[in-house]
Amino acid sequence: MSATEFHRPELVCPAGTPAAARAAVDAGADAVYCGLQNATNARNFPGLNFTEEEIAETADYVHGRGAKILLAVNTFPPAGKFDLWRGAIDLAVRRGIDAVIVADIGVAAYASSRYPALRMHLSVQAGASSPEAIRFYCEEFGVKRVVLPRMLTVSEIADIHRQIPCEIEAFVFGNIGMMAEGRCSLTNYATGVSTNMDGICSAAGDVHYDEDAAGNLTVRLGNFVLDRFGCNESAGYPTICKGRYSCSARTEPYYAFEEPVTLNLSALLPDLMRAGVTALKIEGRQRSRAYVKAVVAAFRKAVDDIGAGKEARLADLIALTEGYRETEGAFRSKTWR
């Protein structure tokens, strides 16, 4: 690919803490995305996320290095609790956030009517996957960028790009998240807390690990056994969607929903750029600074190499993957499983 065939995409990187945000920017992120320490974002995990003071400090650091800071306000307010989401949008404006990432139409309506100049991105949690749906958000709320669900092929992304008036952001690395984003109620069913409204997927307080003397690991969420890993097996996240289950129709336990595997589209980067993708997103606000630094640096180099007309040399990221496996998921083929 020649350097003139595409615009240099923005590398959008996860930041679960201020230290992770600094690590991401230092490793070459064009933008970091983060969340507040409450239910307004979809990674509302213990010990994670930002206070308002930390948002302000991080914004100063990020802007001082020519990068952007985005605030994920990407959960769905339950009835009677809208004030928390309204407060998050107000905070974003007060603290000079470059864009908010929203999913709920009520939050989008508040942001666009109260702060017309505030740049808005449509979260993957909104699950907008058709040109018609995306255009609705653009026309009604002035959305400037859509984060596409991880269920589209590259050619479908190119097709959508030709039919919408906004930018496209696509996931390139991290949790595969093949469930219909923003509509998964598995955690809610098992624990009573909601991924979509509380921002908590597989609440850590309901996760239990039991390892026997032989090293076999049983993983439970609430009262449900999700998996049993043999002593020599690699493990995955303790989520229902990654669990392995037995049923009478199968002789062996099987992955009913998804598998513990990590999305890695490094080999498809040129195709994504040709398809019109404006921003490349790395998943993993719940991961460590070590993960952020390694993954961001690898993708920074790959994108820059492609931009310079060179073949991208991608660092080996297999050690950071879930289940020690990578996939290109639906981006290459709908029948990837």
Binding site: F229, S234, A235, G236
Partner: peptide
Amino acid sequence: LDGDALFFTR
């Protein structure tokens, strides 16, 4: 070193 990666590999 990433804690999740250490957990995945047991």
